[in-house]
Design a binder for these strands. Sequence first.
DNA 1: CCATTATGATTGAACGTTCATTCAGTCAAT
DNA 2: ATTGACTGAATGAACGTTCAATCATAATGG
Lengths: 192, 192
Amino acid sequence: MENLLDKKQSIIESALELVHANGFHGCPVSQVAKNAGVAAGTIYTYFENKEDLIVGIYDYVAEKITSYIAERDDDSLEFENRFFNYWRNFTEFYEQHPAIHGFYDQFLNSPFNSEKVQNRPNMWHEWAHMFFQSGMDEGAIRATNPVILSILVNTNITSTVRIKKNFKTKLAKTNVNLDEISQLIWAGIKTA
Amino acid sequence: MENLLDKKQSIIESALELVHANGFHGCPVSQVAKNAGVAAGTIYTYFENKEDLIVGIYDYVAEKITSYIAERDDDSLEFENRFFNYWRNFTEFYEQHPAIHGFYDQFLNSPFNSEKVQNRPNMWHEWAHMFFQSGMDEGAIRATNPVILSILVNTNITSTVRIKKNFKTKLAKTNVNLDEISQLIWAGIKTA
DNA sequence: CCATTATGATTGAACGTTCATTCAGTCAAT
DNA sequence: ATTGACTGAATGAACGTTCAATCATAATGG
């Protein structure tokens, strides 16, 4: 732990893992501190209070998602390809970071994700907004509110990853090709 | 409040509203009791502990959904019609019972919905399972694990209702016809 | 038909625990 | 010597849960 950023990050990652494992109930500040290797009081150097910490996880996570997806987007491709890349990369990211997927899944519909939080400028929302807007400008997808469009697409990605996670070992054969879901959604949003 | 069932129900409904309004954090037993018009101790006549109460809400809600949907299903129709009825009725139900929608949205991805809870016999899951199975038996939809199919369909219904709820007043015009989402999903699951 | 007893739901103050938060003192770096 | 991060025991509020006391109702007996 060389510097301040590392310490803040290790607090966030400790909290992230705890929320993923035990939900919002199961991440007392004392535990977050212990797993992060700092004292409880130290957390209050970096965050005003616990709610601020939870929102801090969200910002951290949103930033990670944005850079992962944005780096892998190639806007010289036609939008259809960009869409399927988006889907695949997002899925890949979630599967490589199950704690982030678990946190996001719980956070989005929780009261922590308040109107106030949603109304702050948000890198990830802006990027996704721009992404789908460019699909419309190109005439590849139907004119639609890009905010709603991204919610819809992301909901299905999150849900698909959750199903894969839960059913990986439980059901031997599902006969459903979950990857087809991206095609299903694409068929629904592309221009007729 | 004539009898015991009414009292249990009023406790559940009080808790349901509180979870919807404030999340799982914001529903202390003391408040649940106050809003239900009973003493805190009384709750423990009907539920072992708070977790049992939360699961009790889930069972209550699942029962309501099942009866609403099942009553309105007409299995003499061909499956495509039954599917769109299912979608419309579910949406209708959620919009008439926003607290149930809000609770479900939070409960499903929460640690309260543990493996143990999921593995209990569940009227609603069984009904949905049977519903989609009959669509397959009829040859109307592709062979698919009906459990996964219902998760996927229900996720999109829940999400659509959430979008309608959140964006009703915020955005004047969305240009997206959210009702088309049912057609989109149908196109994806029906036999080619 | 009333008086007495038994039953079991209901109450809400009290209890013990847990938690977020604070802060006086310590430590490390410059 | 100064600064500012860091510590972790202390604090007090909030919470889930308990239980002795109360109450309403039903059952019993004269």
